[in-house]
């Protein structure tokens, strides 16, 4: 048999799935349809009046306000930035971090408490049974409800949740942002935590169970401690996205960086828009560095 025949034979014998093929076709059709017959093609973006607007924007509106029409140096630029930061940026930065910190802690706490109820090795008639032969219907309901709650929590995007909560709870405080982030992330972290709990080594659980530990003792003494490392790693992974999201949620009128971005945008102060967007990018990068450092130290 020649080498080419061998390759053909291997390819033929590889497992195939009709579902995957159909999905691939649908997905491909979706990607094509998204671009056919739409106004999404960017050709008009640089022609005619738009080009003129763009030039004016870059030449003029992007330049920090006090520096327009003057000879300026970097000292002036620095002064402008320092003033913006001390007057508005610093407080909004701390608020952004506080909103995301409180939200992620609430989310992680909820996920942490609920995760055992959704995992097959704890929420079952006989915990840590590797055969999994006998399972009571009541326990299946408990797992289903908890898991369903996780799915429901994360179905709506944070921005939509916060939008509804601002209208319901009133403006002027940070609860809408905190709750929106907490609910969405509780869903994500809940699912990940439940998976972590299911992947725990069964031996310690079995040892405790066979020496007479009740389910509650099992969770406190073995499930939570054993899942802690993985859970922390997920915690930091979501913390970074929370910081990103909470600065955007400010655009709904909540006192984070987004508030000042929206404010400057409505006044057409584009120099300030860019300043605050840059500031939010910086704190996200800082949060990213902290979380990846933390996650690395957890792994080791």
């Amino acid at each position: 048999m020649s080498r080419r025949d061998e390759v053909r034979r291997l390819r033929r014998s590889a497992p195939k799935s009709r579902f995957l093929r159909a999905s691939g076709v649908v997905l491909g059709a979706l990607l094509v349809a998204a671009w056919v017959d739409t106004d999404r093609w960017p050709f008009a973006l640089f022609g005619g009046r738009r080009a003129e607007n763009l030039r004016r924007f870059v030449d003029r509106e992007l330049v920090p306000y006090p520096l327009r029409d003057t000879e300026w140096g970097f000292a002036d630029l620095w002064e402008w930035a320092a003033q913006l930061f001390t007057q508005r940026g610093a407080e909004a930065t701390v608020s952004t971090l506080a909103i995301s910190g409180l939200a992620i802690l609430l989310a992680a706490g909820t996920a942490w408490l609920l995760a055992p109820f959704a995992s097959r090795n704890v929420a079952t008639r006989r915990p840590a049974e590797t055969d999994g032969a006998d399972d009571a219907a009541a326990w299946r309901v408990v797992r289903g409800v908890t898991f369903g709650a996780f799915v429901a929590f994360r179905a709506l995007p944070e921005y939509v949740l916060a939008f509804l909560l601002v209208a319901l709870l009133g403006p002027g405080h940070a609860w809408p942002a905190v709750l929106a982030l907490a609910v969405h992330n509780a869903g994500i972290l809940g699912r990940l935590s439940a998976e972590t709990v299911e992947n725990i080594e069964p031996a310690p659980l079995q040892a405790l169970r066979d020496s007479g530990a009740r389910r509650r003792d099992l969770v406190v003494a073995a499930v939570w401690p054993l899942a802690l490392g993985r859970w922390l790693s997920y915690f930091f992974y979501r913390f970074e996205t929370c910081v990103r999201e909470s600065s955007a949620l400010g655009m709904l009128g909540i006192a984070s960086l987004g508030y000042w971005i929206r404010d400057a945008q409505s006044k057409h102060y584009y120099d300030e828009v860019f300043f605050f967007v840059g500031l939010s990018a910086l704190i996200v990068i800082a949060a990213d560095l902290v979380s990846s450092r933390a996650r690395r130290s957890i792994r080791e």
Binding site: N53, F57, Q265, V273
Partner: peptide, 15 residues
């Protein structure tokens, strides 16, 4: 590190 909504603000401002 910049949220998609903030990218939208920036891009709408530019273009």
């Amino acid at each position: 590190s910049t949220h998609e909504l903030l990218w939208a603000v920036v891009l709408l401002a530019i273009f």
